[in-house]
């Protein structure tokens, strides 16, 4: 009997690859939702490990709020070219132009909520029956209870009380027409696991994850990147700060943290010692105690 070293990252990786292959085997028209954030970048690496030397059995889908960090978009385009897979872009600007959604106004306006509509439209347009996403259960307490295969109705809604039991490593992907399944292969990973994996696999990330100088304003106790997408007034004081981002979302809702971490090792030690959780830097979760649960029920990822 040979011995082998199968550590926690190997186990998480093998589980995620198994889930991705179940998606390939069980669905007609799956898609991988790609945000340009580290979790979806990790998914792309896992998909390479699951399907190479074959092609991915799904396209990448990016829901573009139009309020992206430009570093994210250039990263996305380079990556798509490197892996040679198909990219579909769903545009929030288009949804606004079509009058399907109305841009928020006021100081805390953001396109974060609008992307739900664009996502659902994109799913309907391409008739995707499964959408793979990079959500993790450690992010937030509503997510802690979500299945790895999570059924959405025609309206994109998640019903926490009608979730299917999910046993052993068996995933039930049967759905009715119009429904789709959101699949979360890295459900069991923590933020630190993702970073350790990125370090181990030497995966490139968009530069905004690392320390850089940026004009920021402080709002509701959080540092926001000054940008044309943020409604600013005279009370907002722009300051030059040394910052980095822990998540990559819409520029108007993703807060920066002050940091000198320029290397992955620095980031990992910073996170290990950190006293603010990752979603703590997301203004969209701060609205109420049940904010995430409500947005998920409404079709948000």
């Amino acid at each position: 009997m040979s011995t082998y070293n199968f550590d926690y990252l190997d186990e998480l990786e093998a589980e995620a690859i198994h889930i991705l292959r179940e998606v390939a085997g069980q669905f007609e028209k799956p898609a991988l939702l790609f945000s340009g954030g580290k979790d979806s970048i990790t998914l792309v690496r896992l998909a390479e490990k699951a399907f190479r030397p074959g092609k991915f059995p799904f396209p990448l889908v990016h829901i573009d709020t139009g309020h992206n960090f430009e570093e994210t978009i250039s990263y996305r385009d380079q990556m798509v070219e490197r892996i040679g897979e198909k990219l579909i872009i769903g545009s929030v600007q288009e949804s606004i132009d079509q009058g399907k959604v109305v841009e928020q106004t006021g100081k805390n306006a953001s396109r974060n909520a609008l992307q739900t509509v664009t996502l659902l439209d994109t799913i309907a347009k391409y008739q995707f029956d499964a959408c793979i996403g990079g959500a993790r259960r450690d992010e937030e307490k509503a997510r802690a209870k979500e299945r790895i295969f999570s059924v959405r109705d025609e309206f994109g809604q998640w019903d926490p009380k009608r979730q299917r039991p999910e046993l052993w490593n068996i995933y039930n992907g049967k759905i009715h027409k119009g429904e789709n399944i959101r699949v979360f292969p890295i459900s069991n990973w923590t933020e630190l696991d993702v970073w350790n994996y990125i370090r181990r696999e030497k995966i490139d990330l968009p530069s905004i994850y690392f320390s850089h100088e940026r004009d920021c304003i402080t709002r509701n106790g959080q540092l926001m990147a000054a940008s044309p997408f943020l409604n600013m007034d005279d009370e907002d004081v722009v300051e030059r700060k040394q910052v980095r981002f822990r998540t990559v979302g819409d520029m108007s809702c993703t807060a920066a943290v002050e940091s000198d971490a320029t290397l992955i090792d620095d980031i990992i030690s910073e996170i290990s010692a950190s006293k603010i959780s990752e979603r703590g830097a997301r203004m969209d979760d701060k609205v109420s105690e049940a904010a995430m649960e409500d947005r998920k029920k409404g079709g948000y990822f």
């Binding site: 926690y8 259960r137 450690d138 307490k141 509503a142 802690a144 209870k145 926490p160 009380k161 979730q163 459900s187 069991n188 923590t190 630190l192 696991d193 105690e289 049940a290 649960e293």
Partner: peptide, 26 residues
């Protein structure tokens, strides 16, 4: 207690997964 219904009733109604790690194990 993850879900709103659970907080309101003060009970756990579903499976919740929680993660922690020490130096020795995840």
């Amino acid at each position: 207690d993850g879900l709103r219904a659970e907080r309101e009733q003060g009970i756990t109604i579903d499976v919740a997964y929680k993660y922690f790690q020490t130096e020795k194990r995840k």
